[in-house]
């Protein structure tokens, strides 16, 4: 059956019930527990992961629908250093209980990877699928803006250095 890449590693989903949502395959079989169960019906976003870079609810996605795709979870978001979104989340002390935050971070990081300087409305619409029961929206928004600023700044820095270093 399905073979997928999870956080850069190949995983076989052989032997799993093909209707099992990716959420439970990750949590109970792949040992990846950062992804959370909140509602199981696509309403809360606690189970958000990236499928080929797109923020997706894993609670409704049967493993049979996945083959050859790349799954990134909160555990795989940081490559060498923490992702700017993770850093901003810590700096702004966003979390209360923290249960929703892996999903929030995956949605926010997906937004900023595509659109590094979103407007308030773009933030709202990208984040509306993620519920925070503890009500940390005020800080989530500030943290996204901080992460955005740092991603834009490092992109500029990278552009500047690469222009300098690359003879045209």
């Amino acid at each position: 059956m399905a073979n997928i890449k999870i956080n850069g590693n190949d995983h076989s989903l052989d032997g799993l019930d093909p209707t099992m949502p990716l959420l439970w395959a990750l949590r109970d079989h792949a040992g990846i527990q950062g992804v959370k169960y909140g509602c199981g019906v696509g309403q809360c976003g606690a189970c958000t992961v990236w499928i080929d870079g797109i923020a997706t609810r894993s609670c409704l996605l049967p493993v049979a629908a996945l083959d050859g795709q790349t799954v990134t979870t909160i555990e795989g978001l940081a490559t060498n250093a923490l992702h700017p979104v993770q850093r901003a989340w810590i700096e702004h002390d966003v979390a209360q209980c923290g249960y929703c935050q892996a999903g929030q971070i995956m949605s926010a990081a997906a937004l900023l990877e595509k659109n590094p300087s979103p407007t308030d409305d773009e933030i709202d619409s990208a984040m509306r699928g993620n519920i925070c029961r503890c009500g940390t929206y005020v800080r989530i928004k500030s943290a996204i803006k901080t992460a955005s600023a740092s991603m834009v700044a490092s992109a500029l820095f990278y552009d500047a250095t690469s222009t300098e270093e690359t003879p045209v």
């Binding site: 527990q33 950062g34 992804v35 959370k36 169960y37 979870t73 909160i74 555990e75 978001l77 940081a78 923490l82 993770q86 989340w89 810590i90 700096e91 002390d93 966003v94 979390a95 923290g98 249960y99 935050q101 892996a102 971070i105």
Partner: peptide, 17 residues
């Protein structure tokens, strides 16, 4: 900053579930 902030932001398995 909350003592668990980094564990939360990196998805460590720290919850009841």
């Amino acid at each position: 900053v909350n003592a668990s902030a980094e564990h939360i932001a990196t998805g460590q398995p720290i919850f009841g579930i």
